[in-house]
């Protein structure tokens, strides 16, 4: 294949997001990450749910699958398991992933399929004109809400941790370079990586604006936080690691951390599949049926 330029990863289709939307920053970071990792566009698939953020695949020159509201994770996992050679990135908003799709968010953590899930978090349902998202705090009132939010906020990092995601990070939509590095690391991570991206919605979220974030965000790694969880930690060491993670994941308000929070090596679902599919992943579903079915052998248990 010819050497691709960054421009080659950008689709002709122009984004129709609002001016100043955080989605632009995430899209740029994703394009740059795929370019820098020299990902083959024909072997790369970006999946999305439904919502503003879910239009992302249309602006990338790789295979793009814009699925249903809340269902991006199962579709993406199905494709990755059927063809483990694909590089798979799933994207979607906070409502998509933690509202309607919360069940899949949790169940995916149990599997640890080798892919990256990027959650665009602007705390509102933008495409339907600004209703409260599952990450908007209790009592908070963004400008299009008629009343303060009566429902509490999910902490995506703690939920991802409880569910079993093996790489957990947070980025910021306007820190494109930092975000690009996180995306690269998330794609490279072996297992299910979760990247929580904080993102202002200039149209509907007047609480957590670019200015609000600028005063609060800091980088964990600049303060010496080590997310790596080596194998063979003693229970006490693991407890300490988890306590530190929880402290940082829960930090919200005056200071908000970004960076990598957790990085563990856990067998992927693909590796676990090998237990009953001995030839997987060498023989994977997308290859089709390469040898005749041993129907005779299968029928033996039914013989009379």
């Amino acid at each position: 294949m010819v050497e691709l330029k960054l421009q080659d990863y950008k689709a002709e289709k122009q984004p129709d997001w609002c001016p100043g939307c955080g989605d632009y920053g995430i899209l740029s970071a994703l394009q740059m990450a795929l370019f820098e990792l020299k990902k083959n566009p024909s072997q790369t698939v970006v999946f999305s749910g439904i919502g503003c953020s879910a239009k992302t695949p249309h602006y990338l020159n790789v295979y793009g699958v814009h699925t249903l509201h809340g269902r991006v994770l199962p579709v993406a996992q199905g494709a990755k398991l059927a063809n483990p050679h694909l590089t798979v990135v799933a994207v979607g908003g906070d409502g998509d992933g933690l509202g309607i799709g919360a069940g899949h968010f949790v169940a995916s953590g149990r599997r640890n399929v080798d892919m990256l899930y990027i959650l665009y978090d602007n705390e509102v349902y933008g495409l339907t004109k600004g209703q409260a998202g599952p990450t908007l705090g209790l009592g908070e009132k963004t400008k299009s809400l008629p009343k303060p939010n009566p429902q509490g906020r999910i902490n995506p990092l703690l939920l991802a941790f409880a569910a079993g995601y093996t790489w957990i990070a947070r980025g910021y939509a306007y820190d494109v370079k930092g975000l690009k590095e996180l995306i690269k690391e998330g794609i490279t991570h072996k297992g299910l990586a979760f990247l929580h991206v904080l993102q202002p919605c200039p149209t509907y979220n007047d609480l957590h604006t670019k200015e609000w974030f600028a005063l609060r965000l800091y980088k964990l790694q600049e303060e010496g936080y080590d997310p790596y969880v080596p194998e063979g930690l003693s229970p006490e060491e693991l407890d300490q690691k988890m306590a530190k993670f929880q402290e940082k994941a829960a930090e919200w308000g005056e200071r908000i951390p970004t960076g990598v929070f957790w990085k563990a090596e856990v067998p992927t679902f693909e590796e676990r599949l090998k237990a009953y599919l001995p030839r997987y992943p060498e023989v994977y579903p997308a290859l089709g049926q390469k040898e005749a079915l041993d129907l005779e052998g299968l029928l033996k248990e039914f013989a009379l």
Binding site: F47, V65, T67, L68, R71, P74, V75, A76, Q77, G78, A79, K80, L81, A82, N83, L86, P285, A286, G288
Partner: peptide, 10 residues
């Protein structure tokens, strides 16, 4: 939806 994802790969 997972079956659909798999089908898309062939």
């Amino acid at each position: 939806t997972m079956a659909i994802g798999a089908a898309l790969t062939g």
